[in-house]
Design a protein around this nucleic acid. Structure first.
Lengths: 222, 222, 222, 222
DNA sequence: GATGAATGAGCTTTCATTCAT
DNA sequence: TATGAATGAAAGCTCATTCAT
């Protein structure tokens, strides 16, 4: 449900059931795709999970491929919105710069390891061969936008003299790389431990500040 | 079953053809799997590509699943060996520390973006739901080993006073995160540009040294 | 699964075609199985013979094994019903006891050599290794029941003093053994000759009466 | 074939291994066919069970079909020989006629329920559709011969005034029918109980004597 | 618009059989 | 002669998709 699509305020009552079915289908599809992957997911499973008949899926979404595209773009858009929202709390000055960055990083990591976010990433990556355009599209409207926004925030801090950054986009990418660290390679059978996550984030921000800080924000405590 | 069962030295000449076929099958399988993914890859395609009859694949590998496992573990082992070999040229003192690290980083990135390495990573990730144990096994024998080795190298430099590192494993992870930067998310439709790659590596090493260097290895020239 | 699941009375007219197809499938399956046996019968043959597409068979019956079970139990139940019906005309007193027994025996033999009855017997026996439970089930609901019924009839005659029988179940088995004589071993390439059949039946009843009769029912004519 | 085929005394020593392999193949084949039936038996199983390589079977027997024919005819011939041998002890006069008949009947039933005899019967019946000529051939050289021999014995007794028999062949068939009773339909999952068997035999002989005896051989004891 | 039924295409796997050694 | 390896053919089963109600 791509962000703006839910804003039909009062749908004609006759369409309520219809929209409900559509929503049920999309949600069921995300669950099934996440569970067993694209190819292994049969429309029978999805129809059963959604509580509708198989042809109803065709009536609404047209084909399995199209259903997949909808589910991916919708879910990715929601994930992206959450990540962008996490930037709202980005620190604007060097007061508590370290803790501010850590807080933002924590939120970002939380978005990153969110179940549906992971599912979309895994599925997109998994089906990159079959849907290369889909991967590109989601990237352009998601991570790329997000990096731009983050770069903007960092640039503001650099302009204000709180950080020493030459290339904000690069710095943004490195910030993300450091706080996500080896997260991208996770997702196998082991669930993520929240303590480990926190350590990675703190260490990532620390390294980032050692590289780009002005020296005034030493690591507290230690 | 087991991965290393092909190590019969000096096969009787009668087996030459047999081993050739086996190798042809495994190579063809890697190509086909890379091209269209696990589920979409039919044994017909693989047999045709390998120039053998379909049942021959069963004679050698037993099943599609087993074939996949062999191809993945074999290829991953080769990739891993290359990565570990790249560490051989790791700098041992601070003479040309920066350029030494850059050189190693370049080699590692080259390994990382190597076609078969990318293929394995993509396939493993793609089929993580179907083969969770396989993902774990490859990780344990690949990346995990590699990080340990890299951490050892960094620790040696730290002991010699050339770097300031508290947690070598963490530093190793961060080094990799910085020089690979957003590489993990690549692999869509766009091929990787070698110039961009180089920039990312140089910037990654630079940030790493700003965070962990001793100040004696300032960026040359620039 | 269960055998008797087709007993929906007055199906909605929309189901007519469905039930027709199901029946067509079951009938075609019996024909094909009879003709070439279980293993040699391919679902393609059955589908073609039934005039439906292959997956339709799976929609209705689920699997080849299940299809076979249904066909066997259905047909055996029909055969069994016919045999039991033949007992209705069993003589109740010694008026024309011999001819009464002969008449019943003729009917029973007719049931026994009925095409579909022979087919089921042959198939069950043939596939006894693969479906031992099926053989047991059909026996329990068929021959075993039948022997009980026949034993009851004989016991009644014995009670009335028309026969001298100590163990009615044994006598029933022997009656069947005598009138079927070597029938069980038939079924090869030679069709059964109706004249031979009649002779066997008459001779069987004669022997039975010589062993169990009271002397009042001598062989007529001869 | 082939009762006589094994009587090559002192084969050239070079052929010992060869003949051993042939015998091993035939025995293994009988076991495998009995266990899983004709179609389900693969030549791999048989080769493994016989401890030879698959093509060796072709060298010796030519094809799966031919192998089956050999196994069936060989085993049937052995079974038939045993049944005929059982007739040797057939009583020649009315001294102990009843017990003599019971003894013979017991031997015959023992032959009938012998494992390999049952196996052959089941397999022949099972594959009657595929090998109708084989069924006929085995019958002609087995049961038909046997019934003739039994009829001869009965005729001799009748001639001597110990039995009252008009049609010896018919009487032979009825004798067999009575002592085998429902045996033909056995062979499912339940093993045969030797006590039941004995009861059936005794009762069968009793009925036979009541029908064909001269009155001098009343049931002893009872 | 929603559904039960039907289908064409395709997949993995097995097996009897034949080469080449 | 005995065998390891290879293969052509075919079978059971599944699935995305479409009619007809």
């Amino acid at each position: 449900m791509s962000v703006g699509e839910t804003e039909k305020k009062t749908p004609p009552p006759a369409d309520r059931g219809r929209l409900d079915k559509r929503r049920a289908i999309l949600e069921a599809a995300l669950r099934v795709f996440s569970r067993v992957g694209y190819t292994q997911a049969s429309l029978d499973m999805i129809a059963t999970e959604a509580g509708v008949a198989k042809p109803t899926i065709y009536n609404h979404l047209g084909s399995k491929e199209n259903l997949f595209r909808h589910v991916m773009t919708d879910t990715a858009a929601r994930s992206n919105a959450k990540s962008l929202a996490a930037l709202e709390s980005f620190p604007g000055d060097d007061e508590a710069l370290r803790t501010g960055l850590e807080e933002v990083a924590h939120k970002l990591v939380a978005c990153y390891v969110d179940e549906s976010s992971q599912a979309v990433r895994r599925l997109l990556y998994a089906e990159a061969v079959r849907f290369p355009d889909l991967l590109d599209a989601v990237r352009a409207s998601g991570p790329d936008q997000f990096i731009e926004a983050l770069a903007g925030r960092l640039a503001r801090l650099a302009n204000a003299g709180h950080l020493r950054i030459e290339d904000p986009v690069r710095a943004a990418n490195q910030f993300i790389a450091l706080v996500y660290e080896e997260l991208p390679t996770y997702g196998g059978s082991r669930p993520l431990d929240s303590g480990e996550l926190s350590d990675v984030v703190v260490a990532g921000v620390d390294t980032f500040l050692r590289a780009f800080g002005t020296g005034r924000t030493d690591r507290t405590g230690k």
